[in-house]
Simulated scan of single mutants.
Amino acid sequence: MRANQVPTEEIKREPAAFDDRVTADGRYGRTAEPGRYRLIINRACPWAHRVVITRRLMGLEDAVSLAVTDPKQEIIDGDPHWVFTEETGSPGGRDPVLGIHALREAYLAREPDYDGGVSVPGLVDVPSGHLVSNDYDRLALDMATEWDGLTREGAPDLYPETLRGEIEEIGEGVYQDVNNGVYRTGFAPDQEHYDQAVDRLFSRLDELEERLTGRRYLAGDHITMADIRLFVTLVRFDAAYHGHFKCNIRKLIEYPALWAYARDLFQTPGFGDTTRFDHIRVHYYWVHEGVNPTRIVARGPDPRQWLLPHGREALGGSPFGSGAAPGPVPEGERVPDLR
C-alpha cells in the first residue's frame, strides 16, 4: 500500500518474500559467520525491533552489523521505500557497507525481476549484496536458537524447549489481535471493520492485563520471545497507535499491570536502549498520509514516563534467568537518553 493511500479492504500482511535461514551448522544452506551479514532496519518498525532486541540480548552486535534507514521513507516511482540518508548517519545517502541507497536494491540483487513489496528487517549477505531474508519472526527465532558459537557468554534462553508450546500459543493471539490488530484498526476501510478490529485488540489487552497482574513475564520466570513480541507493540502504543490509529478505548498507561510490565521491560537492557520514540512518531505520522494527510507529527506523550519505577520485582523471576545482562550498547548504535 502506498503511503498516501487509504485502504479499500481490510489490511492483510503478506508472507515474507525471502526466507533463507542462517544457522551455525549451515543445514539450510547458509552458515552463521561473523561479519557475513548486515541487518537493515528502521527504528520505527515493530517487526524490525523484535529482531534488534533479540540480536542485542544474544550479544550478536559484533557478528551482525546494523544499518538504520530513515523513518520518513522516500517515494520512488510512486511507492514508499526504506532508504539511507545523511540524517541517519549514511554519508551521501548510501549505506557505507553495502553501498546502496534503498533496501530494494538488495531485493533486486537477489532477484532482478522482483516486483513485490519491500519490508524491514532485511538480512543482507555482505559479499554478494543479496537479501537473505525479510522473515522477521524466523530471523529472531534463529538468532535466539541457531547462532551457537557467536552469541555472548550469559545470553538468555529466549525460546526454552519446555515453554515453546506456551510461547507460540500466546504469540498467536498477540500477533492476530495486538501486533497486527493495531494495523487492522488503523487501516480499517470502514466502520464495521474498525469496530471489529478495535474490539478484538482491547479484548486481548484486557486478557493480557489479567495474565500479567500476578506474574512478571508472559511465560516462565524470565524474558522469552513472547515478551519481545508483545513489547514492540506496547512501546509504540501511546506514542502512535492510540492517536494515529484510533486505538483509543484506553491508553497503555491506563492498564496498571500492562503499563508496569512494559516499563519493566523498557528498563531492562536490550529493550529501552533499542527504542527511538522520535523515529516512531515521525514515521507513523509522516508516512501514512491516508490516515494523517497534514503530516503533522504529534509531540507526546513524554517518553520520560517510561523511566518511572515499576515495582515488578516483587512478582519474582529475573530478566535473564540463569544468564546475565548484555554489555553496553555499541557506540554507533546508541539511542538518545530519555533523562
Rank of each mutant, 00 (worst) to 15 (best):
Thr151Ser: 15
Gly117Thr: 00
Val124Lys: 07
Val178Ile: 15
Val97Gly: 00
Ala140Gln: 10
Glu166His: 12
Leu163Asp: 04
Arg110Gly: 05
Asp148His: 09
Ala188Arg: 04
Ile170Met: 14
Leu201Pro: 07
Leu139Ala: 05
Gln196Tyr: 05
Arg104Thr: 01
Gly117Arg: 11
His130Ala: 15
Thr151Phe: 14
Leu208Glu: 01
Leu131Arg: 00
Val124Asp: 01
His130Leu: 05
Val174Pro: 05
Pro160Thr: 08
Leu123Phe: 03
Ala188Asp: 02
Asp206Arg: 10
Gly181Ala: 02
Val182Arg: 14
Asp199Trp: 12
Leu150Ser: 04
Leu141Arg: 04
Glu209Pro: 03
Asp199Ile: 12
Ser90Tyr: 11
Asp113Ile: 06
Gln196Phe: 13
Phe187Arg: 14
Tyr175Arg: 15
Val132Ala: 14
Ser128Tyr: 01
Thr85Tyr: 15
Ala144Thr: 12
Ala140Lys: 07
Leu103Ser: 05
Leu108Gly: 13
Ile170Asn: 13
Tyr194Ile: 04
Glu192Gln: 14
Pro121Lys: 08
Glu209Thr: 03
Leu141Gly: 03
Gly78Ile: 06
Ile76Leu: 13
Asn179Val: 06
Gly165Trp: 10
Asp206Trp: 02
Gly181Thr: 08
Thr213Asn: 11
Phe84Ala: 08
Ala188Asn: 02
Ile100Arg: 14
Asn180Met: 09
Ile75Phe: 03
Asp142Gln: 04
Leu98Lys: 01
Pro189Cys: 09
Glu192Cys: 06
Ala144Ser: 12
Leu205Ile: 04
Pro80Thr: 04
Val83Trp: 11
Gly117Trp: 11
Arg104Cys: 09
Ser133Lys: 10
Thr151Asn: 10
Tyr107His: 04
Ser128Val: 02
Asp195Ser: 09
Val118Asp: 02
Ser133Cys: 13
Glu172Asn: 12
Pro112Ile: 08
Asp157Arg: 10
Ile167Gly: 10
Glu209Asp: 06
Val124Asn: 05
Leu139Arg: 00
Leu141Gln: 12
Tyr114Cys: 00
Ala197Phe: 03
Leu139Pro: 03
Gly129Thr: 13
Asp177Phe: 13
Leu212Cys: 01
Glu172Arg: 15
Tyr183Trp: 06
Leu139Tyr: 02
Pro91Leu: 08
Arg104Asn: 05
Thr213Cys: 00
Asp79Lys: 15
Gly116Leu: 03
Ala197Arg: 11
Asp195Cys: 06
Tyr114Trp: 05
Ser119Asn: 03
Ser90Lys: 07
Arg200Met: 00
Asn179Cys: 10
Glu111Ala: 15
Asp142Met: 01
Asn179Leu: 07
Asn180Pro: 07
Trp82Thr: 12
Pro127Asp: 11
Asp142Pro: 01
Ser119His: 06
Pro189Ala: 09
